[in-house]
Simulated assay, not measured.
Amino acid sequence: KPERICVFTFTNKAAGEIAERLAGELGPSVERVKRGTIHAFCAELLREFGEHVGLQLGFGIADESDQRTVLRRLKAPAKMHKSVLDAFARYRFRGEPMGHRYQTYYDGYKQIMSERNVADFDTLVLKTAELLRIATVAAEVRARWDVVLVDEFQDLNPIQYAVVRELAREHRHVFVVGDDEQSVYSWTGADPKVFNDFRSDFGIALGDVVHLRDNRRCPPAVLDPARRLIAMNESIFENREPQRTTHVSPFAVTALTFADDDSETAWIMEDLRRDHSAHDGTLGWGDVALLYRTHKIGRAIETAFLNAGIPCRLAQGRALADDKIVAYVLAALRVIANPHDEIQQELFYQTVLPDAVFDSARAWAEETGRSLVQQLEHMARTLPREHG
């Protein structure tokens, strides 16, 4: 029965792709399959049972902008916000100790979140793991599904794995897909050693592990040097079978170093011009793709290209919440739902006010000891008179 299947994916997009594939086998009944990210699953479960683990009805969910606003309240420098949040995750999911300064931030962060009845994404998982340690609740939840499927298993941290394990503890029908060599989220607490825990907890012998050998993405020119690098890592599966690929590429992998970002950009532009000229117009500018690590890098390269007369277009997706109108509506709804939450008010003002006004108000608030909301109210009362 489709409704007895629970599927965890790493992203909502992946959940949709799995649904499309299942539709070929299940038809319209695929809509009855429980599927989504582990955070969405945890949030839904806590809406139902959250009071058992200290969450009040109607609790809010904090995104990263909300978290950063709390850190600003705690006087954490903006340039440290990412490292602080990463340290929180490693502490909560893997028990890695934090220094005194980070611990102070964490204690204040927990207090503010608790007072506001708000949970961040990590708390959703932690509270769900705590919830599933309550025998009566765990039994009721487990009884809803007969099969648990997990995609991108290597990206789970130990607490997320504990949630999966508890769901499948009785029926033991759990199937996971992952690659320990693609585990890249250790900074958020992910640990590829959950593969070993999974094998141990469910009695899976090494010989029963299915190795997917066919690489359908990379030619040997990419696969071979990648394998030489990965061979330096600690292996989770000692009997891993070598991958094979049928892709062919005439290009070798080349590693270059540059003195600075400007030198790198200059080399890229010159290389593009050489290729463009060498192909006598058969290689158009639109036939070339340039990959980069962050959008900040992409924006800098775009500016350099356009200044040099090289046509280009950033092919970056944008989240719905990044649309200014949608962001305004969401921020307003959060204030309506939580009219006494000053952090939601601050996020609303940050959304609707010009950056210069908001930044000035925040700086003055820190200098005077007022809250941002108090400072904005003060500015609204006094600035018109001060400026005649």
Rank of each mutant, 00 (worst) to 15 (best):
I301Q: 13
I301V: 15
I301W: 14
E302W: 08
E302A: 14
A304G: 06
L306Y: 07
L306F: 08
L306R: 15
L306W: 09
N307R: 13
A308Y: 08
G309E: 07
I310G: 01
I310Q: 05
I310N: 03
I310D: 02
C312R: 00
R313V: 13
L314M: 15
L314F: 07
A315H: 10
A315E: 13
Q316A: 15
G317R: 07
R318C: 03
R318F: 09
A319W: 08
A319S: 13
A319T: 09
A321C: 06
D322G: 06
D323F: 12
K324Y: 06
K324W: 05
V326S: 07
A327Y: 03
Y328P: 01
Y328I: 06
Y328T: 14
L330T: 09
A331L: 06
A332I: 00
A332K: 09
L333H: 00
L333T: 00
R334G: 02
V335S: 01
V335K: 01
I336S: 05
I336E: 05
A337Y: 00
N338I: 02
N338K: 10
N338F: 09
N338E: 12
P339R: 03
E342P: 00
E342C: 01
E342W: 02
I343S: 00
I343N: 04
Q344K: 03
Q344R: 13
Q345N: 09
Q345T: 09
Q345S: 12
E346Q: 04
E346S: 04
E346H: 02
E346R: 00
F348W: 13
Y349H: 07
V352I: 15
L353D: 11
P354S: 10
P354K: 06
F358V: 09
F358D: 08
D359F: 09
S360W: 08
S360I: 08
S360V: 07
S360F: 10
R362Q: 14
A363F: 10
A365Y: 00
E367F: 11
E367P: 06
T368D: 12
T368V: 04
T368S: 15
G369E: 11
R370H: 07
R370F: 04
R370E: 04
R370I: 01
S371D: 03
S371G: 09
L372D: 01
V373W: 00
V373H: 03
Q374A: 12
Q375M: 04
Q375H: 01
Q375N: 01
Q375V: 02
L376V: 08
L376N: 11
E377W: 05
